[in-house]
Amino acid sequence: MSWRPNHTQSVFVLIAAVVAFPFFGGASATTVMALGGLYAIVAIGLNLLVGYAGKISFGHNAFMALGAYASGILTVTYDWSPLAAMLAATAGSGLVAFVIGAPILRVRGHYLAMITLAFAQIVIIVSTRWTEVTGGLTGIPGVPDFSILGFAFDTKQKMYYLIWFVTIVLFLLSFRIVDSRFGRALRALGAHEAAAASLGVDVVRCRIQIFVLSAVYAALAGSLYAHFLNYVNGTFFDLSVMIQLMAILVVGGIGTLWGPLVGAVLLVWVSHSLGSYAEYSQLIFGVLYGGALLFLPRGAVGEIAARLKGTGSRLRSG
């Protein structure tokens, strides 16, 4: 099973912790945690793709960028409402993912990883050079606060709650996805493609769907990011973001549903506490990534789950 019997309690504790955090953490810590929520949103989708369907993408930083730029450009240049811009940004990024994924996901092998890596490099380069549209290296300043029906999320704390609301909704939806007809097909094809196909699973279709969904999550996070910082810049979404996302999955526990959440929160704090050592962040993420692969191959959550199972007779009702 994908979760322990105390799932409801764990979720309740999570929600309580998220709600209470700003009251104890202070403004700066709340900003860090909001960033953690943004990373978690991307990681939740990426985990469904990588951890369950077994396909690797190195382009999710680019889908974040697409979401952020689309929101930024539509709200600043074209004066769209933030909500309409966000819907267009996520739908548009999903469409881009479909165009990229549909041909590549038909073939076996690691083509998706290579093509998405190339795609991401192109997106980032274009975003910093196409000055008329993206503002080039200056980026897009003055992105308005996010608002829904006149209610403005005009403080970092309000944005924190919005971001974590989205994070928790997507987190809970991931349980539904994994435990469904679609989710079982996904897990089966991730475990063994031919065996899944032999039971009637349309492998290509499932893979395209989950790739598009994960890209939509990334774009949604990017769009929220733009409104959170009131600013968009392509350098926010370079390859190091993708490396950090992979580290989140591996450290948190790839193919576990709590993994992306735990990994994202851990990694933003590591990143934040580097302070003046920030220039070594790549090195430190590399060490974390390698260390997790060597010593905690199931990630933090996978390891804890396995320990709980080991002593399961007492912990589980039966």
């Binding site: 097909a185 897990r187 475990a191």
Partner: peptide
């Protein structure tokens, strides 16, 4: 065997063509 799935879940993969619920 489908790693990470229970016996029951594995058999439920076989029900795939009997239904239509998507993502």
């Amino acid at each position: 065997p489908f790693h990470g799935m229970t016996v029951l879940e594995s058999v439920m993969v076989g029900c795939h063509t009997r239904g239509g619920a998507g993502m």
